[in-house]
């Protein structure tokens, strides 16, 4: 199955990828391909937009219309693509720094508009490409090259931010649980409005090493042992959920999709 996916959805000339051994991004990229495959989307109609960072390199490897843009701006470029050609399926792959620091404003406004874009965030809790600086999702107290004495910033919960800003579908998956994560991405793409799927990745090279998290295998084991499904989390206290990853579909709501609303304006103005 995996090799079939590679044949169909990857640009083999541009593989192997540049990610470090053990990195979670490769698994998540595969999940995206699997989700597109499961939905039976026409590759010619899929536009994959990424920002800058480790995650953003996924765009170059995948056989769609791909746009590797500027740091944090993937959603802004994608907004132009989707507004101009609403019939295209627009997917953004971003990193945690990309989506929630430099691109945080674009994230909340894409959510607020409920534009039909699927935002997939490969969250490894660190700036990997630049060598391990702390990001807006680095847990409190953890270390990065720019937080040598421990991070004193409170981390963002990207899903909560997106939901509060108006995203009509939010979910969280992990690199460990590829089956579940694929389903969540699939649902996100199928969803008509703005969807956000936060995918917990791992960075054994920087985050893991700086914070003594062991090997990549240890870090995936941690994801496995600390993932709590949305259903199970409902019966747990805040204290019990501390440090856990709540996985599954987090929220879903209704609001008209932006490009459909705009089409109605065009029709009204043109008197159709």
């Amino acid at each position: 199955m995996a090799s079939k996916l590679i044949d169909e959805y990857f640009r083999e000339d541009h593989l192997p990828h540049i990610w470090c051994a053990g990195c979670g991004h490769g698994i998540l990229m595969r999940d995206v391909a699997q989700a597109v495959h499961n939905l039976g989307l026409d590759k010619d109609r899929v536009v994959l937009v990424s920002g800058i960072g480790c995650s953003s390199r996924a765009a170059g490897y995948m056989d769609f219309n791909t746009m590797h843009t500027t740091h944090g701006r993937a959603l802004a470029f994608a907004t132009g693509v989707k507004m101009a050609r609403p019939e295209l399926e627009v997917i953004c792959i971003m990193g945690d720094g990309d989506a929630s620091a430099i691109g945080g404003n674009h994230l909340i406004h894409a959510a607020r508009r409920n534009i039909g874009i699927t935002a997939i965030i490969f969250n490894n809790d660190i700036y990997g490409m630049t060598g391990g600086q702390y990001s807006p999702t680095t847990p409190y107290g953890e270390k990065g090259t720019t937080a040598p004495y421990g991070n004193i910033d409170r981390p963002f919960d990207i899903v909560k931010v997106a939901e509060a800003a108006g995203a009509t579908y939010t979910a969280r998956g992990t690199a460990y649980d590829a089956v579940r994560t694929t389903k969540l991405i699939e649902e996100g793409i199928r969803h008509k409005g703005f969807s956000v799927i936060e995918c917990a990745s791992i960075c054994p090279t920087y985050y893991g090493r700086k914070n003594k998290k062991g090997s990549a295998v240890d870090m995936y084991r941690w994801q496995k042992e600390n993932s709590v499904s949305v259903e199970k989390a409902k019966g747990m206290t805040e204290e019990e959920l501390k440090g856990k990853l709540i996985v599954g579909e987090i929220s879903r709501s209704e609001f008209p999709e932006l490009t459909e609303q705009y089409q109605k304006i065009i029709e009204k103005v043109q008197g159709k």
């Binding site: 937009v49 746009m67 802004a76 470029f77 907004t79 132009g80």
Partner: peptide, 18 residues
């Protein structure tokens, strides 16, 4: 758009879409 940077990006995205 939400800012000047985003509006420039969106214009470029639209052009890429033809």
């Amino acid at each position: 758009m939400e800012d000047e940077i985003a509006s420039c990006a969106a214009a470029i995205g639209a052009s890429a879409a033809g």
